[in-house]
Structures are given as structure tokens and as C-alpha cells.
Nucleic acid binder design. Sequence first.
DNA 1: GTACTTTGGTATATCGTTATACCAAGAGTC
DNA 2: GACTCTTGGTATAACGATATACCAAAGTAC
Lengths: 350, 350
Amino acid sequence: MNSKPKLETVAKAAGVSTATASQVMRGVGRISEATRKKVVAAAKRLHYVRDGRAASMRSGENREIGFVIHQIANPFNAEVISGVTDQLESDGYLVSILDSRDDPERQRKNLEAFIQSSRGGLIWVPAQNTSDETFDLLAANGMPTVTFLRRSGKGRFDHVGIQNAEACGIATRYLASLGHRRIAYLGGEANYGVRTERIAGYKDALKQLGLNGPLVCESPDDKISGMRAMVELHKTSPDVTAVVCNGDMVAIGACSAINQMDMTPGCEISVTGFDDIQDAAIASPPLSTMAVSPYQLGRKLARVVLDRIQEPQMPTAVSLVPAELVVRDTTGAPQIHEWIGDSDSGICNI
Amino acid sequence: MNSKPKLETVAKAAGVSTATASQVMRGVGRISEATRKKVVAAAKRLHYVRDGRAASMRSGENREIGFVIHQIANPFNAEVISGVTDQLESDGYLVSILDSRDDPERQRKNLEAFIQSSRGGLIWVPAQNTSDETFDLLAANGMPTVTFLRRSGKGRFDHVGIQNAEACGIATRYLASLGHRRIAYLGGEANYGVRTERIAGYKDALKQLGLNGPLVCESPDDKISGMRAMVELHKTSPDVTAVVCNGDMVAIGACSAINQMDMTPGCEISVTGFDDIQDAAIASPPLSTMAVSPYQLGRKLARVVLDRIQEPQMPTAVSLVPAELVVRDTTGAPQIHEWIGDSDSGICNI
DNA sequence: GTACTTTGGTATATCGTTATACCAAGAGTC
DNA sequence: GACTCTTGGTATAACGATATACCAAAGTAC
């Protein structure tokens, strides 16, 4: 009653051989309608589910794809997961997720688990400070792998990512075009690959525009940290009128801080985010941000990993998708204090 | 170079039999230090990872636990996952997650996948409208299962949940004690088990208190829907001065709506949430809510599933953890319009 | 009637581990 | 010297499904 029924059980119940039962379950081979029905009925009655371990070991096929992500509790990532899942499900695959929490040690165990179970393929956001050895591990075990967001692994794997530098260049130039002259970069922690790329775009834009040297503040990518960092930034550099943020969460936090300091985002200080998570549009005020469609990104990821599974020998490819500026209410021309007279009035001049 | 090395490869490289290599890898049996080192070195050199499918098929052990959840992109659930993961990792297990998105069809595939791979155990938030047959499937395959949040399955499985009715009773009585006489329930969709329990607690409290009959509004459990629902509620029932919400997201949405209608949560209208997600404390104003510790809930879940794995024959158990009232700024005595004179002033009388 | 094809099905080796049983050689005991 | 014990290791049969090869019976061609 509570030990897994096996194919043999089903076959016996239906009065056929395991070979026949197997063929019926897989819908292959030449089987008469009569026996087919007998087997199907027996299987249903016994709640038979085939042992995928044995099946995949023998057939060499595994339709479960692994996704190792650095933070599952992140609306952007959640959307990506949705996209991946939808696309892969429509191709008959399944996506199981492990959360490395950006810890190389835990990540290592996660990846080993996927190798152990011989997952059909792997989508992976490498944790910060992932060792070369970890990449070697995947390569040596021939795992069809796509890295996501963070590029690494010496080109041995396919990669899907975002045009980070370009996007932050766009944001910076847009703020400058509104008249801002002192633009800071806020959020992210040192040595994070993605952030490094974004900051590079920001710096390049500043240089191109001939604006004052870069001003970069670190901060974990969450709301509370964003608030703290914004307060600190305003205290130490009150001349900053625009802030390019590393992510929407930080940006929303920064906006809260601006509100709490009795100013209005988009007036005294302009803020841009990155990602365009759902909360961005309904934040108060709604956040101007660099939008990437995480759902579409997810579908793209799925297609790349499927291609890799089907053609293991293809040369690896990198695709970087662009981000698009979405202007909402947190960006505007800088408020000229001298003209208004009362910088504490909270009145907006746009 | 890219086909998985197997135990045989390692054994040959080390000049021993597969049996010996296996014993070394598992750290069992009597092996001389010299051979042990040879084998370990060979394994490392070849990046050997054992095939868990074969191993678990033979040994009957699987240290990967499955978690089927109804919504992965939910801060509360994410915290639960953290708790589960931490606890299980410390016991040498791993948690892989599938997101059913509350779709019985997808859920069915998810569960079958876990049965197929013979996961060591299963934590499961049953989707709405899960068929009996799905429960039968798990039972028939002898999967060590713990249901979470939503109770079902005719007592065949262990269960961990929340004292929903009690919690909403507490919230309702608290609001009444502040002087509120017209208290509504907001959020959740019809036929959701959890919501039904919560509403029962709310209704019982109203009856006990002799207050006006229940007023219940449906709404999906997200911020935007919460905003809409609150606006609607205020339009149709302007006498409502307090709202017990089905979840924090809805509550935060409701507070936004109250703000937008030029009122202040905790003054004209009081609001309580449910869950105490991270955003609750930093919302503006900070949300009064019924707090459960999702992280602790996760650890509890993990312990229950471990116990079930170790003692498959134990009678099943149900544990319901209490929720605790956390008073922040969205609850207060009802504003008496007549006394203040100007109900549009936005001035709070507490 | 012989040769060939089609139909419907079965026997069995195999996937990569691990559990069990077994064994050879040296060490200790009396 | 005959005996047990210990040490360090190996051979081999499982685990449950599937791919391959094979086969008997019936049909079909000429």
C-alpha cells in the first residue's frame, strides 16, 4: 500500500511483460489496442509513476532542468523564473530551483546536486566569488549550462545577460539632458560584476558629458539600505541633484528617504532605478527606471538552454538584451533653489 | 573530456576496484590510508561527482527534498523557504523548489516529477482546488509528505499551519477595543481555505462583541488589488472605520489608497495586515499586523519532514502555530468627525 | 507450398552505483 | 604447526526502467 508500485507490478496486474508495459507507458512500439487499455487501466489503478532515475539512467534523457539562482526572494528573479518555466513547460521540461543565496559554498553543493541527478540542463546565476574550480566542475561533467546575468567561465558556457553599461549610460545622459550637473551612482556592493559594468557605463557617460567626476555609493540592494544610503549621500554631498540607482529596490528606498527629508523625488532630487519591477510603477511617486522585461529574459534563457541540449557541440553564444528608459515621476529638471527662494517649501518647480 | 566521469573511471585511474572506490567516496569500509588518498586524488583530478540516480536507486536514500509551493514570488514564502533550507542543510539535505503557481494541473506535474525522482521527502502547499486523486497519488507512492498552510488530504499527511481563525479574532477584538464599531474584512479570494478560516475568526469575534454583521470584500492578495478594493469599500460603505486584511500586501495597498483619498491610516480608517512581511515595518505608515515568523515556520516544517522520513510509521500530526499582534501606526481609535469639525483636514485626533 | 512481411509481443543486457558475500595474506594465540 | 582474527580489498547481484534483438503466429504473394 505504501511502497512505490513499479513497472513490474503494473505489468503483472495487466498480465503482460515489463517490456510491453514500458512500451505502453511511453506510447511507442506496436501494441494492440486491447493490451494498451489493460496496461493503462492497471497503471491508473495502482497510481503508477515511473521511476525517473532508472528511466533517465537507461535512456540518457532527463527532462528536468535546474536553475541555481542567487536570490529567490526578488521580484525580478521571480519574473524571470516565470518566463523560464512557461517556455520550458511548453517544450515538455520542468524547472526546479535552488537558491544559493549568493554563497559560493552553498552554490557548490547546489550544482553538485544537479550534476548528481544528471539534470537535463542548467541555468545558473553564478554567485559572487565563484571559484574557477566550480566552473571546471560543470564543464568536466558535460552539463549543458547557461550562465545568467553574471558572465564568467571563460566562454565555456552560453550566456544571457543585460546591456548594463549601455543602460546606465542612457540613464546618466537622460538626467544630464534634464539639466543635472552633479549625478551620483547609488547601490550595489563592491566587486559585483553587474554593478561594475553599470558603473562603467555611468562613468563613461559622465566623461563624455564633461561632468564632474564620478560619485559612487555602495549599498545592499534593498529598500532599507537604499534609504540609509540616500540620507548619507545627501548629508555628505548636498549638491547632488540626481541619482542613478543600481536597482529598483534601492531607488524606491532612496525615494522614501527623499520624501522623509521633506523633499520630492523628481524635484529637488531625481532618481532612476534599474529593472522595472512591478513595484516601480506603483511606488509613490512612480519610479523612472531602466526597464528590462524579466519575463522575456526568462523565455530567452529557456530557449538558449534548449538549443544547447539539442546541439551540445555548437559554439557557445552570448546574448545581451538592452534595457529601455521608462520615464515616470522621479525624474525632472533640477530645482533651482535660488529662483524659488525657499528650499524647504517642498514646492516643486515643474 | 565532456562525458561524465564515472566511478569506474576513477577506480581505474587509482588502480583499484569500483567497490573500493565506492567505499572511499562514502567513507565506509576498511581502506588503507594509502589507497584512500589515491582514490580521492583521482576523483578530484577527474572532477568526479557520483551519479545520485544510481546511488539512490541502489541505496534507497535520497537527500534531496522537494518543495512545491503556490507562489514563489512572495516575500513570506521566500522567508519560509529560507528557514526550511537552513534547517535541512544542517541535516545534510537539500531543498529544490517547484512553483505550481496555484494551478492544479501544473502542480500535478510537479508532484509527479518529485515522485519520479524519488525525492526523499516533500513539503507541499496544495493548490486551490487540488483533486483528491492528487493526494491519492502521493499516498500510493509512499512519499513522506508534509502539507503546509492549506490543510487537506484526509489526515494522511503531516501538516504545519497557522492559527488563522484565532489570529483574525485577535485582530478584530483589538480594533473593537480601540472603539471601532464597523469593521470590514478585506482581501483573499472566495473558496481559499486559509481565507475561510480567517474570516470565520473575524465573524466569530464580531458576533461575540455584538457588532454589526460581517462585511467581507474579495480581492487578490497584491498591492494594486488592495488599493482598488479599499477605494471601492470606502465608496460603498463609508461608515467602515477599520479593516482586517487577509494579508500584508493587501493591507499596504489599502493604506496607499487611504492616503490617496486624503486620509491617514490609523486615523480615519484603521488597518491590520497578516504575516508581517519585511515591507510591513517600513511601509508608510508602518503596518499593524498579525505576525507569524515565516523563518521559524520553515524550520518547523523541515523538522516535521525529517521526522517523517526517519519514522515513516508514526501517526500523522498537525501543528498550528499562533500569530501575534504587532501594533504599529495603522491602527488607532476611530476619528470622531463631529468633534473635529473638519473631516477633510487630514489632522489626526490621536 | 515456399518465401516473405507484418503484427504483437517477450527475453535480456544495460545504465552507474552500493550492499553483500567472499577471499587472500599477514598477525596473533596456544 | 594449526587455529582464529584482523586487515584490506574484490566479485557480483541487485535497484527499476528501457533499447535491442529476437520470436511465434498470422497474413500475403506468387
